[in-house]
């Protein structure tokens, strides 16, 4: 069907689609909660991450580094690098949302992959605002509720390795990486970063391989694309 024959989204359809995305995304907070307590964070620390950081890949990165025995501050630096993409999302969203003052300060917290995606596809600023707020709001509520459930459940389970939760961490990162492997440069950078990180594991303290490999792969990826 050609694009111009598609029914134009209405406020109602945007709200419905946004809640759908919110439910699907929020639900995987369960895996974050369970993985986080399995990595050695308390239930309170886990819930604080979902409440205050509220950007999934960064949260997984911090607990992933802690789980591998790395310095938590190294984990925080990895988390911040991953969070830098939200700055670019903000740039795209600013003219659509048109918020100032406290509205802008509140909306900033809701900037994530999903709320951005559901906002920038709308045909006008009014629907862009609806898509952003409903998606961001429903993900926020469900992500935090699911994190708490996963953290409490994970703590009750006992030995995380017996339930394969350590294997779940790698799978979670692969799931977050998967949709980003669209181009050749991305795939090469990913492969190079993975191999370099493994090469660094025996040579450095945990946490450092991820950071170093990530940065070197970005630098090389930029050169490849230029040539």
């Amino acid at each position: 069907m050609p694009a111009d024959e598609r029914p134009r989204p209405t406020r109602r359809s945007v709200v419905r689609d946004s809640i759908g995305v919110g439910v699907a995304t929020g639900a995987y907070g369960v895996s974050f909660g369970a993985i986080s307590v399995a990595s050695g964070l308390s239930v309170l620390q886990t819930c604080a991450l979902s409440l205050l950081v509220f950007t999934g890949a960064s949260q997984f990165a911090l607990v992933g580094v802690v789980a591998s025995g790395g310095n938590p501050i190294t984990g925080a630096v990895s988390a911040l690098l991953l969070g830098s993409r939200n700055t670019l999302y903000g740039l795209r969203l600013a003219p659509l949302l048109g918020f100032t003052g406290w509205r802008r300060a509140t909306a900033a917290h809701l900037i994530i992959d999903e709320s951005t995606a559901m906002s920038v596809v709308q045909p006008d600023p009014e629907l862009a605002r609806v898509g952003f707020l409903v998606t961001g709001g429903s993900v926020f509520v469900l992500w935090n509720a699911a994190t708490f459930a996963g953290a409490v459940g994970g703590e009750a389970l006992g030995d995380p390795r017996a339930y394969g939760l350590d294997a779940a961490v790698g799978a979670a990162f692969l799931g977050l990486l998967w949709p980003r492997l669209s181009g050749r440069t991305e795939r090469l950078a990913a492969l190079f970063a993975a191999l370099l990180a493994l090469g660094l594991v025996p040579l450095t303290t945990p946490g450092v391989p991820v950071l170093a490999a990530g940065l070197v792969a970005v630098a090389l990826g930029l050169r490849w694309r230029r040539s």
Partner: peptide
């Protein structure tokens, strides 16, 4: 590229 490289290193 940052998320691609970091997430791949984290997987490994």
């Amino acid at each position: 590229l940052i998320p691609v490289a970091l997430l791949a290193a984290l997987v490994a």
